[in-house]
Measured scan of single mutants.
Amino acid sequence: MSGNGNAAATAEENSPKMRVIRVGTRKSQLARIQTDSVVATLKASYPGLQFEIIAMSTTGDKILDTALSKIGEKSLFTKELEHALEKNEVDLVVHSLKDLPTVLPPGFTIGAICKRENPHDAVVFHPKFVGKTLETLPEKSVVGTSSLRRAAQLQRKFPHLEFRSIRGNLNTRLRKLDEQQEFSAIILATAGLQRMGWHNRVGQILHPEECMYAVGQGALGVEVRAKDQDILDLVGVLHDPETLLRCIAERAFLRHLEGGCSVPVAVHTAMKDGQLYLTGGVWSLDGSDSIQETMQATIHVPAQHEDGPEDDPQLVGITARNIPRGPQLAAQNLGISLANLLLSKGAKNILDVARQLNDAH
């Protein structure tokens, strides 16, 4: 009898209710805020589980004197976190989706994509230029951005401005803007500013005609071990179906173009009346040469937790077992079709030249 009692006690200790789920994140304040929001949602869904947040620095956090596009290494903000995932030191990792490459290392998958916040870019102005827009900034004003995508589009749109690289986390960039006289304004992701509670610093939100956004911008991705079915089931509740389908289309477009950090590629997606609209573009580094096109596809946005595919093969690095396969494939095909259209119009040449120029500098 006593033996059975011990077995029952052991089973209770090993039951999922007692389990601590370890969540990996970057150390920056924004990353911690984003991770806290994901953990809060998981806690609400699984009140019996405990969650421990483990923060670590990544290569991208450490190399702050070089433009991201020049470092010449993929997975700048993800490699150390993936290493911890691989060694079973954490069970899942919360990322900004735009930091996750469209091809993940073997053994990993994006197990959830959370509801997207505003994906557009924002302009934050130096205190002396508050009330201005990019259009009304004085001639030769210097605007800071760490992104080739932003610089290429904005140089084309605002030729009277000069664009220079600015690195560091959000706090560091804002301090550089406010305390030094080098920059009249800087460009940042609206979602990051909003998550930090800095709505009052948003001086201008850039519309798609001015600057399309990065693939996955404004959404959070939760990376897990691809074979860890328990954790895949656990994080599945975080999937937002519309965000998922938009981001599958965007990531398929980028992957098929073979774009990345070192080339200016941008997108804009919208879901309306059962249609998914995808606009994508590529630019030369100075913005003088560009190709942009829009395509659409009829896609039914499923309700969360309709029964999805059981075999769960990944699409552009994403596993969404609780979302039907048909809409996911339709979104992926839309991204591939748009990429093929741009490639047929000469996108590869623009991107190759951009890559060579970026590598040469």
Rank of each mutant, 00 (worst) to 15 (best):
S37I: 12
A40N: 07
A44Q: 10
Q50G: 06
F51Y: 04
E52R: 12
I53N: 07
I54C: 03
G60L: 00
D61E: 10
D61W: 05
I63G: 12
L64D: 09
T66E: 13
A67D: 15
A67Q: 08
A67N: 05
K74S: 05
K74M: 03
F77K: 00
F77S: 04
E80A: 11
E82T: 08
E82P: 01
A84H: 08
K87G: 08
N88H: 10
E89P: 01
D91C: 05
D91A: 08
V93D: 04
L100F: 02
P101I: 11
T102L: 08
V103K: 13
V103R: 11
P105I: 08
I113F: 01
K115I: 08
K115V: 10
R116L: 04
P119F: 10
H120G: 09
A122F: 03
A122K: 03
F125E: 06
F125R: 03
F129Q: 13
F129M: 15
F129K: 04
V130Y: 14
K132Q: 14
T133Q: 06
T133C: 12
L134V: 12
T136P: 05
P138I: 09
P138L: 10
S147C: 05
L148E: 05
R150C: 06
A152C: 10
Q155K: 13
Q155C: 11
E162L: 12
R164F: 09
S165E: 06
I166C: 13
I166F: 13
R167T: 11
G168S: 01
G168H: 03
G168T: 01
N169Q: 04
N171R: 08
T172A: 13
R173V: 02
K176N: 06
K176G: 05
D178Q: 05
Q181H: 09
Q181M: 10
I186F: 08
I187Q: 04
I187S: 07
L188D: 02
A189W: 00
G192E: 03
L193V: 05
R195A: 03
M196G: 09
W198K: 11
Q204T: 00
H207T: 13
P208C: 04
C211L: 11
M212N: 00
A214F: 06
Q217D: 00
Q217L: 01
A219E: 01
G221P: 04
R225M: 12
A226T: 09
K227T: 07
L232N: 13
D233M: 07
V237C: 04
L238M: 15
L238D: 12
H239W: 00
D240P: 03
L245M: 14
R246N: 08
C247N: 06
R255S: 11
G259C: 10
G259N: 00
G259K: 15
G259F: 12
S262W: 00
S262E: 15
V265F: 00
H268T: 01
H268M: 15
T269S: 04
A270R: 10
M271Y: 15
L278Q: 15
L278R: 03
T279K: 04
S284D: 05
D286F: 07
G287K: 01
G287T: 00
S290W: 15
T294E: 01
T294G: 14
Q296C: 02
A297T: 12
A303G: 04
Q304K: 14
Q304R: 13
E306K: 15
E306D: 07
D311Y: 07
P313R: 13
Q314Y: 02
I318E: 04
I318G: 07
R321D: 05
R321H: 11
P324M: 03
P324E: 03
P324L: 10
Q328M: 15
Q332T: 14
L338W: 01
L338G: 02
N340S: 10
L341A: 01
L343A: 08
K348E: 15
L357V: 10
A360P: 00
A360W: 02
